[in-house]
């Protein structure tokens, strides 16, 4: 591996160690219970290898390539969102312009134009998309159609693009490099998902919101919250410019935000009576199923970091 700052390199080793542990555990389970069907677990772990492999190649290639890669993720997420929610045939051209917002938003990031990045979607896209719809002139279902389009663009483009902006910020922790904060955010977000799941499996009894997500329990949430807060604090000074105590706080709100992101997308799917948002990632479902928590953690982490250190 060439030119990867030391701390980020160790982080990458650690991630691969976790993946190997997961694969080894799966093989061991299969060996212990030969009759049981572990297809879904196998697909899930295999997909993790692919996702992490592709992500790391893109992150390490260059800042610009990494930013473009997250732009592509926004495209896949937005497409998936527009495909599962009901849209009117008349809105095709409105949705087309929503897609056009993606390259622009990521262009502002690549050129480090923070002012434009932060107002473009909440102000310009927000005000102009309805105008395109008005020109088409279909007023039946207008409110719902525009509400859906705006919400989709905010979640899939605006919120998600904050991940990419982490890489456009000047590097403060030279031992971690530009990928340090991104690795931190992605790792803590996914680690939170896994911890809440595992604590829930081990101890889960009291359901939080049975109507939305029957598997979410207080035990899982609190167990995940404590584990993630602790780990975030110790990892923060290593990969970001946050101090240890700032890292504890980051971990605490990332755990809560990740949980909210997860159940918000769950509510969307429940409303539509579907289990997964797509079939893109074997064993996981669609892209929205995978990045649901990231949509919430990315902007919160970015603005916390930026407020404290930039």
């Amino acid at each position: 591996m060439i030119d990867i700052p030391l701390n980020s390199r160790y982080a990458i080793y650690a991630i691969f160690a976790l993946l190997l542990t997961a694969s080894a555990t799966r093989l061991w389970l299969q060996y212990r219970h030969p009759g049981k069907d572990y297809t879904e677990l196998r697909q899930r772990i295999q997909s993790w290898w692919w996702m992490i492999g592709i992500l790391l190649v893109m992150l390490l290639a260059s800042v610009t390539i990494a930013i473009a890669f997250f732009g592509f993720m926004s495209f896949l997420a937005l497409k998936e969102f527009f495909s599962i929610v009901p849209t009117r045939q008349a809105d095709r051209r409105v949705l087309f312009w929503a897609y056009v917002a993606i390259p622009l938003q990521y262009y502002w990031i690549a050129t480090d134009w923070y002012g434009m990045f932060i107002v473009f979607i909440p102000v310009y896209v927000f005000l102009l998309l309805p105008m395109r719809a008005v020109l088409i002139g279909e007023t039946q279902g207008f409110i719902q159609a525009l509400g859906t389009a705006h919400w989709a663009v905010m979640l899939c483009v605006f919120c998600l693009s904050h991940v990419a902006y982490l890489m456009a910020l000047p590097v403060q922790n030279a031992a971690a490099g530009y990928i340090g904060p991104v690795l931190y955010l992605l790792f803590i977000t996914q680690f939170n998902d896994v911890c809440q799941y595992i604590w829930g499996k081990l101890l889960g009894r009291h359901k939080i919101i049975p109507k939305v997500s029957p598997k979410k329990t207080w035990e899982g949430f609190i167990g995940g919250f404590l584990t993630v807060t602790l780990v975030s604090g110790f990892v923060a000074p290593w990969l970001t410019s946050l101090s240890r105590s700032e890292g504890f706080i980051a971990g605490a709100f990332l755990a809560v935000a990740g949980f909210i992101g997860d159940v918000v997308i769950s509510s969307v799917k429940r409303d539509l009576r579907i289990k997964d948002s797509g079939t893109l990632i074997p064993g996981h479902g669609g892209i929205l199923d995978r990045i649901d928590s990231l949509i919430y953690t990315a902007p919160l982490f970015f603005h916390y970091l930026r407020y404290l250190h930039y």
């Binding site: 497409k79 527009f82 849209t87 095709r92 051209r93 949705l95």
Partner: peptide
Amino acid sequence: RALPKNEALLVPFNC
């Protein structure tokens, strides 16, 4: 939805 009859503009949708 992506490309109906009599339309030339393709809008991306999962199908």
